[in-house]
Design a protein around this nucleic acid. Structure first.
Length: 297
DNA sequence: AATCCGTGGAG
DNA sequence: TCTCCAAGGAT
């Protein structure tokens, strides 16, 4: 049997870089005017929330808080309120906490160092690499869901990557990373963009893919996903739904809210109490007095 | 390592 | 309609 030899890395690099130059979306956090803080804000918002919904929230956020110090000077609850309906509001709390840390420990400047970024609240491996790469043009492996999917297909020859990132995955991504920082940074965002626009999860547009002739999945006849079933996340009736309803009341109210207003959003008292308690434990809700709640100050 | 954590749009 | 899933992080 004839093993298809992988394309030279340099060829993959130029292919993706050329494609990116011609097809990149005009996104505000990619402009030359976007500060590292702006990039960080975009990355927090883009954690599990689609670009289309982030765009208006991103603009409003930076209009109000153009610097970490500006956000840090405001109440955490205001960050939660501004977060609106982006989802996963703990991100708003962590972004506020990150702004405080940046203000107090980094002189108000988003740190450039990957380890320092990683130490910030709400910043994990992906976000640290993304900020260092996109804002500071450093050389880092940026492994998000898009990149993992592109590599799974083009390199490994399977439709979807494993549930959790593997060491082998990270190793392969490291080996493919261009040598120079500036090229690596553009490669990172280019592969992400390819995954977002062409090599999508559901209906990949292989006919338009610049990597078509280099793709191991294509060469293998595009075999369907084999791994364990990816459990669909039910939402109706979960604590998450209840938390969402409770927090929505507090977001839309300015000031404290009596228990009765919260009780009205969910009929089942045990689950309702559990959800509210969870919000308090997470720091998203402040119990100012017995039976009175508000967003944190 | 497996679960939890929101919300809404596309197919 | 209903399922999938979207630039993850923390525990």
């Amino acid at each position: 049997m004839v093993a298809t030899s992988p394309a030279p890395a340099a060829l993959l690099h130029s292919t993706v870089l050329d494609w990116y130059e011609a097809n990149a979306r005009d996104l505000p956090w990619r402009t030359a005017e976007a500060s590292p803080w702006a990039v960080m804000v975009s990355e927090f918002m883009l954690q599990q929330t689609p670009v289309k919904r982030v765009l208006p929230a991103y603009a409003a956020w930076l209009e109000r808080w153009p610097t970490p110090a500006a956000l840090a000077a405001d109440a955490a609850g205001e960050a939660v309120r501004m977060w609106g309906r982006l989802g996963y509001p703990r991100r708003a709390l962590r972004l506020h906490a990150a702004a405080v840390a940046i203000t107090e420990q980094h002189g108000g400047q988003v740190p450039e160092d990957h380890a320092a970024l990683l130490a910030l609240p709400g910043v994990g491996e992906y976000t640290a690499a993304a900020v260092a790469s996109f804002a500071y043009r450093q050389r880092h492996v940026v492994l998000d869901t898009n990149v993992r999917r592109v590599f799974a297909r083009a390199v490994t020859g399977v439709e979807f990557p494993a549930q959790a990132t593997t060491a082998a995955e990270r190793r392969a991504a490291t080996e493919l990373l261009p040598a120079t920082a500036e090229t690596a940074a553009t490669w990172a965002v280019g592969v992400m963009e390819l995954g977002a626009l062409v090599c999508t999860a559901r209906n990949p547009d292989c006919a338009e893919c610049p990597l078509l002739r280099h793709c191991a999945w294509q060469a293998a006849g595009k075999p369907p996903y084999q791994g364990p079933a990816r459990r669909g996340q039910t939402y109706e009736g979960t604590d998450r739904q209840v938390r969402g309803k409770l927090l929505a009341v507090l977001r839309e109210a300015h000031g404290a809210v009596p228990q009765a207003r919260l009780d009205a959003v969910w009929p089942e008292p045990v689950q309702r109490a559990r959800a509210l308690d969870g919000l308090v434990k997470d720091g998203l809700v402040d119990p100012v007095a017995p039976g009175v709640y508000r967003l944190p100050v």
